[in-house]
Amino acid sequence: MSLLPSLLPWAVAAWLLGVGLYGIVTSRNFVHLIGCLSVVQSSTYVLLLSVGFRTGGIAPIFYTHPPGTPAVDPMVHALVLTDVVVGATVTALLLALILQLHKRRGTVDPEALRPMQP
C-alpha cells in the first residue's frame, strides 16, 4: 500500500511520455502534433516534481515556520520553472512555423509536408 503513492508519479510520467510519443507518431495535423509534444513535456514536469516531493513537507517558505521544518525540495521547482519557459518558447516557435507553412502550402498534415519533396 505504501509503495503505490511513491510509484504513482513515476507511472504517470512514463504514461505521459508514452501517449505523447504515440500521438506524435500517428498525428495527421501539425497543431495536434505540437499539443502531443507538450504532453511529452508534461512528463518532465511530473517527474521532476515527484523527485522533489517529501511526504508531509511544507512549501519551502520559512517565514512562518522554524528553520528545519521538513519541506519539499525547492531545487526541482526552479528546474520545472525553467522547463516551462523552454516549453512555451518551443511551442510558440512551432506554432509560428506551422502558421507560415500553412500560408505557403495550404495544409498542416505532416504526411504532406515533407522537406524537398514535391
Partner: peptide, 27 residues
C-alpha cells in the same frame, strides 16, 4: 519551414528525454 519543423519536433523530444534523465540523476 518544413525542415525546421522536423528539426524542432525531433530535437525537442530529445531535449525532454535529456531533462527526464537529469531529473532521475538528481533523484
Amino acid at each position: 519551414l518544413q525542415g525546421a519543423l522536423n528539426f524542432t519536433v525531433v530535437n525537442s523530444v530529445g531535449s525532454y528525454l535529456l531533462l527526464d534523465g537529469i531529473g532521475l540523476l538528481y533523484a
